[in-house]
Nucleic acid binder design. Structure first.
Length: 109
DNA sequence: ATTCTGACGTGGG
DNA sequence: CCCCACGCCAGAA
């Protein structure tokens, strides 16, 4: 729970991620003004399990790698969800990451 | 109370 | 270009 301002902001931002788009933990962290606390973003996503409206599968690390895939059910649920949205993913690596990348600091500017 | 780890990122060598 | 170390904050052992 820990509905701290930080967690809440992360959840809000995550919910704003458009369909077929992806963002990185650092991007959200920077948008919140805590670029160095990118880890906390991931931690906040962990709490997002309580909020099914939060597409955690659309949040990856800065390289577009599905690092958090291990936290999802099954073995390739995260990748499957992304591919379902039209995102090209090969071996946990998002293709054209720069193209589908959604930066809150720019899009929500 | 202390220590380590963790869905990351940046910087220095 | 690749590898290592540090910072951040919170939760678990």
């Amino acid at each position: 729970m820990a509905d701290t301002g930080f967690f809440k902001k992360v959840h809000e931002t995550a919910k704003l991620i458009p369909y077929g788009r992806v963002t990185s933990y650092g991007a959200i962290a920077k948008y919140l003004g805590a670029a160095k606390s990118a880890r906390m973003v991931g931690w906040a996503m962990n709490a997002s399990h309580n909020d099914p409206d939060i597409p955690a599968h659309r949040v990856v690390n800065r390289v577009g790698l599905l690092t958090g895939k291990h936290h999802f059910e099954g073995t390739n649920l995260m990748q499957q969800l992304l591919e379902s949205e039209g995102v090209e993913v090969v071996d946990l690596q998002i293709q054209d990451f720069n193209t589908i990348f959604w930066d809150p600091t720019i899009e929500l500017l």
